[in-house]
Nucleic acid binder design. Structure first.
Length: 491
RNA sequence: CGGGGUGUAGCGUAGCCCGGUUAUCGCGCCACGUUUGGGACGUGGAGGCCGCAGGUUCGAAUCCUGCCACCCCGACCA
């Protein structure tokens, strides 16, 4: 374990890479662009999964599982979909290896070429809609509300742990509806489920909005998104929910008999969040001492560290610590008593700080004599001595307090780094000096959006949904604008 | 995929230009002892296909070719 973490000030990107590795979340593997998610990192992901899964089920969805492989022909059925993903697909062409005749190792058996190549799914719309054709005949079969937890592969040029990996874990919801309005309502509902989760569990504030045409999902009519702002002033797309219209139903011929007895194509949505959320979590809250985790997602919420000399003291301290652990667990907290004799207290303090455990409690002979505990919170790094009879209530109260503090700290950062500008010069200046979200007027054309992107690298992150519309003139062309949109440099 | 860089013990590194005894140092690891309220110290010890595969040579970590991976900059990124 390296002792020093690069600071955010020195090199934000390096800080992130080092932190993910040092906090034991994940590491690079021998496979290009693919990561190994380590137990601690996976533990956080499991917490995320559990909450999201619960929320999906509460909104009427069921889980299912579809194949990893998609026949190539399925892919070509929806034209814009193939445009969006073709360049980053891994393709299976053979099904057998054999021993190399002139030497060592194995080679691909040229005789084992597949009749039709299989695509490793970059997303599952095609295979799912091909299946839905068989499941849907009548309006009585609708709505069909399915989610799957899966891995997908997108052959990215440049990868970064969690933020962009060739293989990643995610969930993808795929729903089918009888009417357009119902499908739109579903897509909107799910983006709100995402924002609820990201804000209330991850403590990461997000802006809800819709994507511009150029940023839209391949095959979607409308893409709803949540955008978060990282500490370095760059935006991160945290989740998307798509209204797909009848595009996939038409491509895969999924029709149903409506109440009037007429055949109609079904209306679709799809929505997803991925292990990228782990990156958002790390980059939003963590500091130069390491990870900072929101209590609701921390695998360990409270760690108890014993301080002692000799076996006799250890036994006494252990007794008190175990009692405290029991009481805290009775309050529903995830508590670890780290009674390892192989590491010293100071080492443990640093270790759990690096891993972002929200609350640390130290207990030693002095505490036993005084009837106290030393309680340190990770978010503020402040220590407080608490009396034995108050510690359980106070610590469980801290969970809520830390959760709220992390959110408000992140929200303050976003507020500070959100700027309204009135002209293009100001826009460029803010982008260069301050970064963050920039709210500006845009004429709604692809050309202007493209020009801004080429000249500044900033993209339109979204057209925010929950704000009052304000008319104005485009900062670039001076043409009329119906509303402000949100620009930023993005991950 | 283009430009640049890197790959030597679990991690970080010296050596490479200019080939030649047993590959350097620190952290970590193991044993024993002393320690334990913010990353302990001493003594002893283990650990190496020098990224992989070929080639040149009496001899390769070092020179040449190919490949793989990682980092930085670009392009790409629903």
């Amino acid at each position: 374990m390296a002792k020093n973490l690069t600071t955010r000030e020195q090199d934000y990107s390096k800080w992130y890479n080092e932190l993910v590795i040092q906090a034991d979340l994940a590491e690079n593997s021998g496979v290009r662009g693919c990561m190994v998610i380590k137990p601690y990192g996976y533990g956080i992901w499991e917490k995320m999964q559990a909450e999201l899964d619960r929320m999906f089920k509460e909104t009427g969805h069921e889980n299912a599982y579809f194949p990893l492989f998609i026949p190539k022909s399925y892919f070509s059925k929806e034209a814009s979909h193939v445009d969006g993903f073709a360049k980053e697909c891994a393709v299976v062409t053979h099904y057998r290896l054999k021993n190399d005749e002139n030497g060592k190792g194995v080679i691909v058996d040229p005789d084992a070429k597949l009749e039709e190549e299989l695509i490793v799914r970059p997303t599952s719309e095609t295979i799912i809609w091909d299946t839905y054709r068989k499941w849907i005949q009548s309006y009585r079969d609708l709505p069909l509300l399915i989610n799957q937890w899966a891995n997908v592969v997108r052959w990215e040029m440049r990868t970064r742990l969690f933020l962009r990996t060739s293989e990643f874990l995610w969930q993808e919801g795929h729903t089918a509806h009888a009417t357009k309005n119902e499908a739109i309502a579903e897509a909107e509902q799910m983006i709100h489920v995402y924002s609820d989760f990201v804000e209330n569990y991850m403590a990461v504030p997000v802006i809800i909005g819709v994507k511009t045409e150029s940023e839209r999902f391949a095959g979607a009519i409308e893409t709803y998104c949540i955008e978060a702002l990282m500490q370095d002033g760059k935006a991160l797309q945290a989740g998307t929910s798509h209204f797909l219209g009848q595009n996939f139903a038409k491509a895969f011929d999924v029709k149903f008999a409506n109440k009037e007895g007429k055949q109609d194509y079904v209306w679709a949505t799809s929505w997803g969040v991925s292990t990228r959320l782990m990156g958002a979590l790390v980059m939003t809250h963590s500091d130069d001492n390491g990870l900072v985790l929101p209590p609701k997602l921390a695998p360990i919420q409270v760690v108890i560290i014993p301080i002692y000399r000799g076996d006799e003291e250890f036994d006494k301290v252990s007794e008190v610590a175990l009692e405290l652990q029991k009481e805290l667990r009775a309050k529903g907290l995830r508590v670890k008593f780290d009674n390892r004799d192989t590491q010293k207290p100071g080492w443990k303090f640093h270790q759990y700080e690096l891993k972002g455990v929200p609350v640390r409690i130290a207990v030693g002979p002095k505490d036993i004599a005084n009837g106290t505990f030393e309680v340190a919170r990770r978010d503020t790094l402040k220590k407080e001595v608490m009396l034995k009879n108050e510690v359980v209530d106070k610590v469980s109260g801290l969970m809520d307090e830390i959760q709220k503090n992390l959110f408000s700290r992140a929200l303050d950062n976003r507020t500070e780094h959100t700027t309204e500008v009135s002209n293009y010069d100001e826009f460029k200046q803010v982008l260069d000096t301050k970064g963050g979200f920039i709210s500006a007027h845009w004429d709604g054309t692809l050309e202007t959006e493209e020009k801004i992107k080429n000249e500044t690298k900033a993209t339109i992150r979204c057209i925010p949904s929950d704000v009052e519309k304000e008319e104005g003139t485009c900062m670039v062309t001076g043409k009329p604008s119906r509303e402000r949109v949100l620009f930023a440099k993005a991950y």
